[in-house]
Design a protein around this nucleic acid. Sequence first.
RNA 1: GCGAGAGUGGCGGAACUGGCAGACGCGCGAGACUUAGGAUCUCGUGGGCAACCGUGGGGGUUCAAGUCCCCCCUCUCGCACCA
Length: 811
Amino acid sequence: MSKGYDHRAIEAKWQQYWEQHATFRVTDDVSKPKFYCLDMFPYPSGAGLHVGHLEGYTATDIVSRYKRMKGFNVLHPMGWDAFGLPAEQYAVKTGVHPAKTTAENITTFKRQMKRVGLSYDWERELSTTDPGYYRWTQWIFLKLFERGLAYVAEVPVNWCPQLGTVLANEEIVDGKSEVGGFDVIRKPMRQWVLKITAYADRLLEDLKLVDWPTSTLEMQKNWIGRSIGAEVDFALVGRAGAIRVFTTRPDTLFGATYMVLAPEHPLVDGITSEAQKAAVQAYREGTARKSDLQRQELEKEKTGVFTGGYAVNPVNQERLPIWIADYVLMSYGTGAIMAVPAHDERDWAFARQYQLPIREVITGGNVQEAAFTDTDRGTVVNSAASDGSFSINGLIPSEAIPKVTEWLAKQGKGTRAVNYKLRDWLFARQRYWGEPFPIVWVDGEARPIPEQQLPLMLPETSNFKPSGTGESPLANLDQWLATVDPGSGKPARRETNTMPQWAGSCWYYLRFIDSKNSAQLVDQAKECYWMPVDLYIGGSEHAVLHLLYSRFWHKVLFDIGVVSTPEPFMKLVHQGIVLGEDNQKMSKSRGNVVNPDEMIDQFGADAVRLYEMFMGPLEAMKPWSTRGVEGVTRFLERVWRLIVDDQGHLSSAVVSAGASLDHQRLLHQTIKKVTEDIEALRFNTAISQMMIFTNEMTKTQQRPRSVIEPFVLLLAPFAPHVAEELWGLLGQPPSVSQQPWPTFDPALTVSERVTIPIQINGKLRAKLDVGLDVSREEVERLARVEAAEWLQGKEPRKVIYVDKKLLNFVV
RNA sequence: GCGAGAGUGGCGGAACUGGCAGACGCGCGAGACUUAGGAUCUCGUGGGCAACCGUGGGGGUUCAAGUCCCCCCUCUCGCACCA
């Protein structure tokens, strides 16, 4: 047997050609419209590229190649998010420097990407670990510091004893470290924090500007978690001061029957009565000992202790007992709540547990059975001051809320308030393999290193073990640590923390625009031309982390005039996860991991690319099928035989004669379908149309060039190597990648005959094959004949005719 | 629990604004060419002997529902005491 074509030879040949001719190098040619097509750059892990990476990369590659053929100037770059924990952990284990591991892994990734035929402009390649790159990461940090957006705070952090480092909330999954699955406890520490909360509103509002998946938009909205309500002061009984609470339901203020402080709340000591002191103390200690995981495990069973103190409800002067309970979090709102058990599920459960009163103030439910929390129905009751000076009775909640808030403001007892779930971003890591902070410490104060002295190089060492005290391995390097304050000349000590991995990935899309600029982060004119990113494809695991942090930095850069767009990424798509053949997540332990190198060896890069796209919708999770790869391989071989004979020459079936109308229609329908499908990223259906075309043309021995050549152009973005080879065999000069994209004639995309289904009462009974110019009367006449058996001579009650689509008799 | 998305042949999946359900591919079956084929080509392939029945289940709107409305079930992802 013979394979249709030798993918090894052809792919190697054309990859070499593209490299030698710099086919995909891009310049800042402002005469052309631009298209910035970006992949989420990978962390170069030791495992190499997997088939999941390839799905996203192939998609952007197809779009890039298509857009080039459409006449766009396409920026399609690739780089490496190369700082990070795995290389460092490997170094701790083996002593191999992370820089070495990283460089080797990058070599593997790059080799694999080239094998796939991805059309990157490799001259713009960058790595976040390159001092010429992280110089600007440090520069951005200085700008954040200057603007008060980077500060040091004593904050309870997630400390992982096994990793010897602090973790961000996002690096913790189910109370364990995302890397390694180790226990995580809370511990107060001095930390660098970025004030992302200052941008909470803009980060929320500007989501309206982008074309992103709804799930990702929702996740970001929830993460930011804006809620509007009121802050209300409850005066303490028997001493000065007040408890300030945040509530989204000021309409239920008359229903408050007790108050709760977070166990860590600073007022707890002051209000606790002598009699309750021991109980309160015990409870607080118990809470402090619990890790986050334990707090989660103990779920739903509400616990708490009465403090012995009381506060006064400002609307009705009622004395409310003050409790502490760990269901109130110090980290949200004011760390204190007014409890309205009738209209809040948690308060209801707590009140039941401790026999506290439940008072209905909104009708509509049975508050003895369950909390009634609806806000879109019900009427306010039992809500008037005893002296009659103020009442919201009879209102609906949406009217009562502003009325109460207004009244509180007038009394000086409260104010409208907005709260966010979003916390400031814990930005420091106690690790070696990251960007050093451009900061020195003098007399306990942080001083920035002048911009001109950047980059602050990561010092060499062979000891990558964390110090274990909470400081990074950099704390062991005495020579590097001791320095002088560039301002005053006083002795100074360097900051020993490094930045988290997110830092480098926050702004890399800007550097691709001008990757070698040593004077600026990015040239302004170039930035204006290329930004924003038009299409960004990557995994949904970054839906809130990378994609929120990037947007934050981008907005800061916007404010200081470095970038010209409010948002970095206009259209975002997440490729779905590729499962193993057994429909399970790919994993080494399951032994179902598909290695792209093996697939390419066996079937070729074009077949693998094509299969990745043919599997199903880009965003969907779907299983790998090596049989499926064989299927698309057969398709490619059919395409090959369409054009090439057994001797490897242009087939005699390819003729110069004009194409029949049917063949022209087939071609134009295919151009239309493939074009529209690429634009909408529906690659699977684009490929199926090319299969239809191929199946049809295989049947004929007269394959006109005027039909075959445009088809090869359509195939080129998907299977570029074989398309280049076929283009050459057709006698055309290279490169197929630089040909204009075929256009279609709308008149030729419709066929001249159409099949009209005939229905009786909506059931298909017959079909009519008619010309396009057929009249309704004619269709109806023919249909009556066709469907006579079903009509039984009776006159239909009604006849529905949809022009050239369908005819339905209602009898 | 809350938020988002999704349930279609043996399998992956098609079906634009309601208008022939199952395109295309895999698998399977039959045939052709063959010493042979796990190559290639052709044909067939939702279920049922049939009338008919079929897009997770149950209602509804409509001449017509995979598509729209209501109720329910299952799965995936995210959040998880956020006041």
